[in-house]
Design a protein around this nucleic acid. Structure first.
Length: 873
RNA sequence: GCGGACGUGGUGGAAUUGGUAGACACAAGGGACUUAAAAUCCCUCGGAGCAAGCUCUGUGCGGGUUCGAGUCCCGCCGUCCGCACCA
């Protein structure tokens, strides 16, 4: 029976096996065709794939399959971002080795991904925890070290005293460790850094050239890099502090407000503050208090501006005899600028709050354009806008850019202790990237610490530094520190007893260059320079917007650092970036307020009213808001369940339908079932068409009849539309085009008589052929099954994309809407090449237009060729 | 606080970038087929007015530019996101 249903449970494993057998998705590096590298952000092997992965990898696969059909040599690899804390947490909780846990998860997830029918070159697969990969990363580290792009210094860190580890700022919640809940301490630790700031300006400038990145991401990176131009000014101390410098340096972007300065403020960590605290117990206590306050968001928002007068005073650079008090203040950051500011209360809100609290003078020096100088006062609100200078001696009357320039010029020429009192400076918010982690499950930093030679790089001949397998997780902290033998080595330089560096690298390092490694995953060096330059930059990178800053910025840094160490030739790794939206789902709760998984809920809808019940017991369930899928709200869907029930193609089709791929998509059962129904509908259509279509060997009739032409026009127009939609990653529009085409074709097919003409039969053959091709990137198994049904012996996955015939895309006549006074009143069919005056004449003759003109002559007739006609009465 | 994005039927969303608003889909309602269900097919579906062709109205709100505005400009309202004591 030809009307059998399409059965994905049989078809999908069959085609997956056929693809694997023929090895059709293996990519060779030496191939004459143009290259196309499409990459989706590789997953962390948590154990199960989630629907977000399905969305991400389906989008990439559509592009990969489409580009392959378009004649490109496509690189579409997959790997695993496999180092990281969850493996160690699992080790502590379940007494499994992080390595076993990780590789088992990878095996499970690889199996799940294979069920999706992705056209991946699995021969290039690797995990970042493979020693072959992290060994190469250690080479890179040594090369960076040699170039000064990696270095070591002490730095303040958030230290969790219970877990014995450093925490990132995001892992500190209200001053406590996110896992342990312990009060976080500030500790000075010696840490390894990558000198990302060496490229601050370049990373910023090059954003302009990334015109195929979302503006949003570029802007976020721009803000993150945070360039500001200003002046570094030295204020002479009236009486220098003990052992300190003779002048205090500050950075400011508002040198124009210098005459409004009424105090100086130091960070509690500023050397001068530290020095003063030595003989001032009260100040030492104040500094301690500032430290305890913490860095959490709420602490910062609610904290009162507080200060402590050190008793020191500095001289105003322009006003002879005028001195300013020096405070230590809790709102000054040590790691921005110089860790010291001059406070101008009139034009900075924080400075104003501070000045009001401590009774310091408030002198307005910038007058808003619409204010009168004599009446202008500042009380509770600082004026931060534009204006002209007042109360400022030689600056009076200048606009504020001019004033900035005037101050800079004058201070550059004034000397203080033999050097200029000020210099222009560009400051960045971006800081060097601390990569040390006190963790086991990461890439070991290839360094040996020798009591005499210091930090000595492990010679390249001795690489890799392998992670030892025999470790214990019985105590918190880094097990490498407690390993009985691993850390004890001879110094590579002097041979004396020395210790290995036990810190491992931040896992963001692993993901900063994996895209390069995919081009030659077994090379003896980090990259094969010959091959990597052929593939990079990645033509299309696809992933979540949550990586807009860190991962993408680090990767851009790595490309530059790898270029400067000879591993690459380019600076920008990703030519085009696409950030996909999240997957959301309704939430459900029972009477007790517990979250319920969608799989356990039955939904019914009558007269627009939706109700939910627990499938097992019939208990009423409350339907909550639609939210991002999360374990905590239990509103997750397991892709494996969906694939088992409906097949991968249904899941793939659903996830790219309807919603634009950069927006959040709502997962609904109804939507999935709709996708399933559509595939069955196409199956029926092709089955029916197959009965009446012409044989593939039959030649094209000399001339097409009207119905044949109608079919062909619909098909060829859909083809070019689908092409441009896929090129634009507008998969939802491509899907809508295909729906439209199938509707049209089915309508025509239903109206055919018993024995259609040769033209129609031939057109129908072409129609199903093209339809199968158009759907193949989205629903590959289904398309193969259709292709086989049409009697083809090869696979549609290796077939070229069909060509549209230009003559079928143009119409000889067009339908123009006719407006009278901007309102649509009628439409008119005209020749495509009709002259404007012909169109105008025809429109004015229309009865509908006459009716609205009411015998009068129109003032004006606007004819927009091939668009619209508007009659102005 | 600073920066940015968005607002279209019951729902997801189209709209060739200033030219027929609501393509396509989901949901809902009605009908056909069936002993029945599933599956499938047909019809209706922004609002108001008449049975219907038809008319008016309609893209968060208020103005403006234009022959013509979902699209451009100004001012509000709302939602979401990023950064945040950055001098």
């Amino acid at each position: 029976m030809a009307s059998e249903r399409y059965n994905p449970q049989d078809a999908e494993p069959k085609w997956q096996a056929r693809w694997a057998e023929a090895d059709v998705f293996r990519t060779e590096n030496d191939d004459d065709r143009p290259t196309y590298y499409v990459l989706e952000m590789f997953p962390y092997p948590s154990g199960r794939i989630h629907v977000g992965h399905v969305r991400n990898y389906t989008m990439g696969d559509v592009v990969a399959r489409y580009k392959r059909a378009k004649g490109f040599n496509v690189l579409h690899p997959m790997g695993w971002d496999a180092f990281g804390m969850p493996a160690e947490n699992a080790a502590m909780q379940n007494r499994v080795h992080p390595k076993d846990w990780t590789y088992e998860n990878i095996a499970a997830m690889r199996g799940q991904l294979k069920l999706m029918g992705l056209s991946l070159d699995w021969s290039r697969e690797f995990a970042t925890c493979d020693v072959e990969y992290y060994a190469q990363q250690q080479f890179l580290f040594l090369d960076f070290l040699e170039k000064g792009l990696a270095y070591r210094r002490t730095s303040k860190v958030n230290w969790d005293p219970v877990d014995h580890t450093v925490l990132a700022n995001e892992q500190v919640i209200d001053g406590r460790g996110w896992r342990s809940g312990a009060l976080v301490e500030q500790r000075e630790l010696t840490q390894w850094f990558f000198r990302i700031t060496a490229y601050s300006q370049d990373l910023l400038d090059a954003l302009d050239g990334l015109d195929r990145w979302p503006d949003k991401v570029r802007l976020m990176q721009q803000n993150w890099i945070g360039r500001s131009e200003g002046l570094r000014i030295r204020f002479a101390f009236e009486t220098p502090p003990s052992g300190g410098d003779t002048a205090l340096e500050v950075f400011t972007t508002r040198p124009d407000t210098l005459f409004g300065a009424s105090f100086m403020a130091l960070s509690p960590d500023h050397p001068v503050a530290q020095a003063c605290a030595k003989d001032n117990a009260a100040l030492a206590e104040f500094i301690e208090e500032c430290r305890r306050m913490g860095t959490s968001v709420t602490a910062i928002e609610t904290a009162e501006k507080k200060g402590f007068d050190t008793g020191l005073r500095v001289r105003h650079p322009f006003v002879e005899g005028h001195t300013l008090p020096v405070y230590v203040a809790n709102f000054i950051l040590m790691d921005y600028g110089t860790g010291a500011i001059f406070g101008c209360p009139g034009h900075d809100q924080r400075d104003l709050d501070f000045a009001n609290k401590y009774g310091l003078p408030v002198v307005p020096v910038v007058l808003p354009p619409d204010e009168d100088a004599s009446g202008f006062r500042i009380f509770e609100e600082a004026y931060t806008g534009d204006g002209t200078l007042i109360n400022s001696d030689f600056l009076d009357g200048l606009t504020f850019p001019d004033a900035k320039e005037a101050v800079a010029k004058r201070l550059e020429d004034v000397t203080l202790d033999g050097s200029a009192q000020a210099e222009r400076q560009i400051n960045f918010r971006l800081r060097d990237w601390g990569v040390s982690r006190q963790r086991y499950w990461g890439c070991p930093i290839p360094i040996v610490h020798c009591p005499t030679c210091g930090a000595v790089p492990v010679p390249k001949a001795d690489l890799p530094v392998r992670l030892p397998d025999d470790i214990e997780f019985d105590k918190p902290g880094n097990p490498l520190d407690r390993h009985p033998t691993w850390r004890d080595v001879a110094c590579p330089q002097c041979g004396a007893a020395a210790r290995r560096e036990t810190d491992t690298m931040d896992t963001f390092v692993d993901s900063s260059w994996y895209f390069a490694r995919f081009t030659a995953p077994t090379a003896e060096t980090p990259t094969d320079t010959e091959i990597v330059d052929r593939w990079l930059p990645v033509d299309q990178y696809i992933g979540g917007v949550e990586h807009a800053i860190l991962h993408l910025l680090y990767s851009r840094f790595f490309a530059r650092a790898m270029r400067d160490t000879g591993h690459l030739k380019l600076a920008e790794p990703f030519n085009a970036l696409f950030t996909q939206g999240m997957v959301t789902h309704e939430t459900y709760r029972n009477d007790a307020g517990e979250w319920i998984n969608p799989a356990d809920v039955d939904i019914s809808e009558r007269e627009g009213r939706r109700t939910a019940r627990l499938a097992a017991t019939g208990e009423a369930i409350e339907i909550g808001p639609i939210e991002k899928m999360s374990k905590s709200k239990k509103n997750t869907i397991d892709p494996s369940d969906i694939i088992e029930t409906y097949g991968a193609d249904t899941a793939r089709w659903f996830i790219i339908s309807d919603t634009p791929p950069d927006r959040d998509i709502q997962w609904t059962d109804a939507g999935v079932e709709g996708s399933q129904r559509f595939l069955q509908r196409v199956w029926r259509f092709i089955t029916d068409a197959n009965r009446i279509r012409a044989d593939f060997s039959e030649s094209k009739p000399e001339s097409m009849d009207a119905t044949g032409t109608e079919i062909r026009k619909a098909v060829h127009k859909a083809l070019v539309a689908v092409e441009s939609d896929i090129e634009a990653l507008a998969f939802n529009r491509a899907v809508a085009r295909i729906y439209e085409l199938v509707n049209t074709l089915m309508r025509i097919q239903q109206s055919l008589d018993e024995t259609p003409s040769p033209s129609v039969r031939w057109a129908l053959r072409e129609a199903v052929d093209y339809l199968v091709h158009m759907m193949a990137p989205m629903t590959p198994h289904f398309s193969e099954e259709c292709w086989a049904m049409l009697g083809q012996s090869d696979m549609v996955s290796v077939r070229p994309w069909p060509n549209a015939e230009p003559t079928l895309l143009v119409e000889s006549t067009i339908t123009l809407p006719v407006q009278v006074n901007g309102k649509r009143r009628d439409e008119i069919v005209v020749d495509a090449d009709a002259s404007q005056s012909d169109v105008e004449g025809a429109v004015l003759a229309l009865e509908s237009v006459q009716k609205f003109l009411d015998g009068k002559t129109p003032k004006k007739v606007i004819v927009v060729p091939k668009r619209i006609v508007n009659v102005v009465a």
